[in-house]
Simulated assay, not measured.
Amino acid sequence: MASDIEIARAANMKPIQEIGMKLDIPEEALLPYGRTKAKISADFLQGLNGRSNGKLILVTAINPTPAGEGKTTTTVGLGDGLNRIGKNAMICLREPSLGPCFGMKGGAA
């Protein structure tokens, strides 16, 4: 089984402009930080006023399985599943996978 760092290094990250296009964010509204990160301009966000809001699903406080599947794995799977069935979904993770920094799982590590 590959380690976390081996999996991360094998990932092919998409350019942020490609992600923006998928979310209907024009390239000129992205303020890039390298190839894979960007902020969205305030002008673009203000232009979204009046549109109907989306839905928020909060994944929190679940105990990981013995294999280490917890909030991060569940959230990524949920986002992938919603996109697979045609929904326009994106995910946001706050402090994902802290444990591998110390060689063990869990933020309390």
Rank of each mutant, 00 (worst) to 15 (best):
T75G: 03
R94N: 14
T60W: 10
T75E: 06
G86M: 07
P100M: 00
N88H: 11
G103I: 02
M90R: 12
Q46W: 14
P15V: 09
G77H: 09
R9H: 06
L56T: 14
A10I: 01
A61N: 11
T60D: 09
G47P: 00
T60P: 04
M104R: 13
I19S: 02
D80E: 15
T60C: 11
D43Q: 15
G54M: 03
G20D: 04
C92E: 11
I16Y: 01
P26C: 01
S52K: 15
G86Y: 00
A67K: 14
L31F: 07
C101M: 12
A10H: 07
L31S: 10
D4R: 12
G99H: 02
I7R: 05
G81I: 08
T72W: 05
M1L: 04
K105P: 02
G70L: 05
E28I: 09
K87E: 14
G79A: 13
P32G: 03
K14I: 15
G81A: 15
G50D: 04
M1R: 08
P26T: 05
F44C: 03
S52G: 13
S3Q: 07
S52A: 13
N83P: 06
K39I: 14
N83G: 10
A89I: 04
A108E: 08
G47T: 05
G79W: 07
G47R: 04
F102H: 06
R35E: 14
D43C: 07
I40H: 02
M90F: 15
G81E: 11
L45H: 07
G34S: 02
L31Y: 08
K22N: 09
L98Y: 14
P15N: 07
